[in-house]
Every structure is written in structure tokens, then in C-alpha cells.
Design a protein around this nucleic acid. Structure first.
Length: 344
DNA sequence: CCGATTTGACCCGC
DNA sequence: GCGGGTCAAATCGG
């Protein structure tokens, strides 16, 4: 998307990126719970690398060289105060209680490609249970846009929403827009590393024989974020052909989550069973603390946080703090989110 | 029977 | 008025 930087920069970025990945791997190798100091150091290291990368790229993003050859781009999506915030039940709540909420819901878009050759395509499954509540033909778009919300919306009040739209030119590419974060404690199948062979399903049962098997995140766009991260998100579902699309990479889940760290917003359970046996270590944690993949989301909070960040010079304060009132914003940056029941 | 999807109507911001 | 987003009744499917 973005034009390429000059070669030196690219090389530099490449190196930094590699360094970052190495650090992440190092983190994995270290017993995460044993050394908080080590963890902190790593976090800081990552932060430095991250900042360097950001500086190189400016605020906007740039291509991160992919070991897999896949190009992932992260871009900032201009905030659109958006149309349509009609009254849905939950919307009404939000609107009545705090009208700003809706507009500032964290939002990011991912370009996801269904792997060709698998013969599978269709609804993307990121590990969460989505319930379709609408579909709409979009002007200028060849394919309709599907609207999904978290299945547990009613039960747990989870406000996560997802919009899926197939790309005009390349039907194998879906543009998946997420809005809001999952506040629900998702089903067990969400816990990656636990039972890799049971990660999709929940939705797409019926008439869509097409079960999503492999996809790649090509692009991640975020909105309301001033902290960007290049995302190297390439992953594949092992359902049929784990290596269908790409070779396994140990950074498969290095930076998948656009925003959620602990809330588990979009943490696809892409643990290739052939890739990782790290049962003892939840990738969530890795993700979460991949550290700076996290971003602030709510624009309002954003300001506050960025201010705080620059002021305190805290390394990883660009955590997603869209916790609203549910959560104090002052938790420690190296809070042990690996606590399983942390949110329940 | 229950939960998910479909689909036309409705709402709302621009 | 238009278009995007959501609702909700009807329908589907296990």
C-alpha cells in the first residue's frame, strides 16, 4: 500500500524487525513467570525496537519484510465519525449513556486472504463466535457486507462487532473490520495451545459448506490509533493442510492482536499444532506482551494515554486501555496477564 | 425446540 | 434523499 521506503531504510527496518522478533522468541524461551525482571527488560527492549521502527516509518506504517514472503501492511485508517449508529439495543445503551462511546469504539480492519487451493472459503473464523445480524449491499462493492456480532453479546454484554466484506477484485480476499473488543470470556476453544484441532466452528454451520480453513492476514488497518505496529500476521488453520499457505513461522502469533492483549479481542487460535507445543504458555500472553503490538484504541483515551506515555516515558504504555470504566488505567505495564482466570 | 441466518424494513448521519 | 448499519420476523437446520 504504502510506497516503499528507500533501501537503506528498508534494510534498517528489516534488521530492527528481525531483532524484535528475536527478542520475542527470547521471551518465549525464558520462563515467563519466573523472571519478571527479565520480562521487563525484554519488554523495554521491544519497546525500543518498536519505537525505532516507528521513527523510521513515521506514523504511518510500512511493509514489514516477511519471512514467508507475505507482505503485511498496517495502516492508519482515518477515523470516520461514521454513519449509522442507529439504535440497536446495545447501541442505545451506549448512545444514551455516553454517546461518544460508539464513535470511539476501537476499530481496525484486516485484509484476510483465503488460501487458494484449499477449496475453502467463506466466513472467516478468528476463533470467536460470531452471530450474523445483517447483510448489506454496499455501494460500489461487488459483494455484500456481512455484519456480525459476538454471540455472547446478550449473555455477557460483549460488544465486539465484525464486518466482513469480500474484495471486489480478488474474491479470495476479505476485508474484516472489527469494532469493539470482546469482553466476553470466550469458549474454551479459544484457548490456543489447548486443542488445536478444534478451533473453528461455531458459526458457519449451516448452509455454508465452505468452511474456512486457511487465510492470511494481509493487512491490518487500525483506527483511532496513533501507535502503529507492523504486523506480521500470517497464519493458517491446520484443519486440513497446516502448511497450505505458508510455511510455519515461529512468529506466527507474534503480533496478531491489533488491540487486545488480555481481552482477547482478536487472538486467533492459530497455533499450528505442528509448530508449537507450548501448551504451558498461552500465545495470548505472547501476543499480549509482544508488547507493542498493542495499541491504544479509543481516541479519547488515546490522548490521555499518549500524553501519559510521553510524560512518563513508559515503555509500553501504548497498551490498549479501552477498558472504560471497567478497568483502571493504571495497571502496571508488566502486569502478569498470563493469569488464566484474570478476567473472569 | 432452540439458536443461527436471511432479508426487508427501519433508523440515522451526512 | 442516500447509503451504511441494525432490527426483527421469518426461516432454516441440527
Amino acid at each position: 500500500m504504502e510506497k516503499a521506503l528507500n533501501w537503506d531504510q528498508k534494510t534498517l527496518i528489516n534488521e530492527l524487525t528481525q531483532g524484535r522478533e528475536l527478542v520475542k522468541q527470547l521471551r518465549i524461551h525464558l520462563n515467563p513467570s519466573s523472571s519478571s525482571t527479565g520480562e521487563l527488560l525484554i519488554t523495554k527492549l521491544l519497546s525500543s525496537l518498536h519505537k525505532s521502527l516507528l521513527m523510521l516509518n513515521g506514523v504511518k506504517s510500512e511493509v514489514e519484510p516477511q519471512p514467508t514472503g507475505l507482505t503485511i501492511v498496517t495502516t492508519t485508517e482515518s477515523p470516520r465519525s461514521g454513519s449509522g449508529s442507529p439504535r440497536s439495543d446495545y447501541d442505545s445503551d451506549l448512545i444514551r449513556d455516553k454517546s461518544k462511546k460508539r464513535k470511539t469504539l476501537p476499530r481496525w480492519t484486516e485484509q484476510v486472504r483465503v488460501c487458494p487451493g484449499t477449496g475453502h472459503e467463506g466466513p472467516l473464523d478468528d476463533g470467536y463466535s460470531w452471530r450474523k445480524y445483517g447483510q448489506k449491499d454496499i455501494l460500489g462493492a461487488k459483494y455484500p457486507r456481512g455484519y456480525y456480532r459476538c454471540t455472547h453479546r446478550n449473555v455477557q454484554g460483549c460488544l465486539a462487532i465484525r464486518q466482513v466484506q469480500r474484495c471486489d477484485e480478488d474474491p479470495s480476499i476479505f476485508s474484516v473490520t472489527y469494532r469493539g473488543r470482546h469482553t466476553c470470556t470466550q469458549a474454551p476453544h479459544l484457548i490456543p495451545g489447548q486443542s488445536p484441532n478444534r478451533q473453528n466452528q461455531d458459526q458457519k454451520k449451516k448452509k455454508s459448506p465452505e468452511t474456512f480453513i486457511n487465510f492470511q492476514t494481509l493487512e491490518v488497518k487500525t483506527e483511532d490509533l496513533d501507535t502503529q505496529e507492523f504486523r506480521s500476521s500470517s497464519f493458517s488453520f491446520p484443519s486440513t493442510s497446516p502448511m497450505g499457505c505458508l510455511e510455519k513461522e515461529n512468529n506466527i502469533f507474534s503480533s496478531l492482536t491489533p488491540d487486545n492483549h488480555f481481552m482477547g479481542n482478536f487472538s486467533p487460535p492459530f497455533i499450528s499444532p505442528t509448530t508449537s507445543e507450548s501448551n504451558y504458555l498461552s500465545p495470548y500472553r505472547i501476543n499480549s506482551f509482544g508488547g507493542q503490538n498493542l495499541q491504544t484504541s479509543e481516541s479519547d483515551l488515546n490522548e490521555i494515554i499518549s500524553a501519559a506515555t510521553s510524560a512518563s516515558n513508559s515503555p509500553i504504555l501504548d497498551l490498549d486501555l479501552d477498558l472504560d470504566l471497567d478497568f483502571p488505567v493504571d495497571f502496571d505495564s508488566h502486569f502478569p496477564f498470563d493469569t488464566p482466570g484474570f478476567f473472569s
